[in-house]
Computed example of a mutant assay.
Amino acid sequence: MTVLRTVARPMLASMFVVGGINSLRHAKALAPAAQPVSDALAPLAPQLPVTPTNVVRAHGAISLLGGLALATGRFPRLAALLLAGNLVPTTVQGHKFWTESDPAARSNQQVHFFKNLSMIGGLLMSTLDPDPHKKILVRRAKDKVVEAKDTVAAQISR
Rank of each mutant, 00 (worst) to 15 (best):
V37Q: 12
F114Q: 04
Q47M: 10
V17I: 15
L48M: 13
K134G: 10
E147F: 00
L44G: 15
D131N: 15
L65D: 01
T53W: 00
L137A: 14
V7W: 13
L82M: 15
S14C: 12
I136V: 13
R106I: 02
P89A: 09
M11R: 03
L12N: 05
R140Y: 01
R106F: 00
A79P: 06
R25V: 12
A104D: 14
F16A: 13
S157L: 05
A153E: 09
A105E: 11
L41E: 08
D129A: 14
P32E: 04
A58K: 00
G85A: 04
L68E: 01
M11Q: 06
K144V: 09
R9A: 09
L70C: 05
D39I: 14
Q35A: 15
Q47W: 10
V50W: 03
D39A: 15
A71G: 11
D150G: 02
L87S: 06
L30Y: 05
L70M: 10
V17P: 05
L24P: 09
T6W: 14
L123S: 11
N116H: 04
E147P: 02
K142I: 12
P49I: 07
A104Q: 08
L117N: 02
V111Y: 09
L64Q: 04
A69N: 05
K115P: 04
V50H: 04
T90A: 12
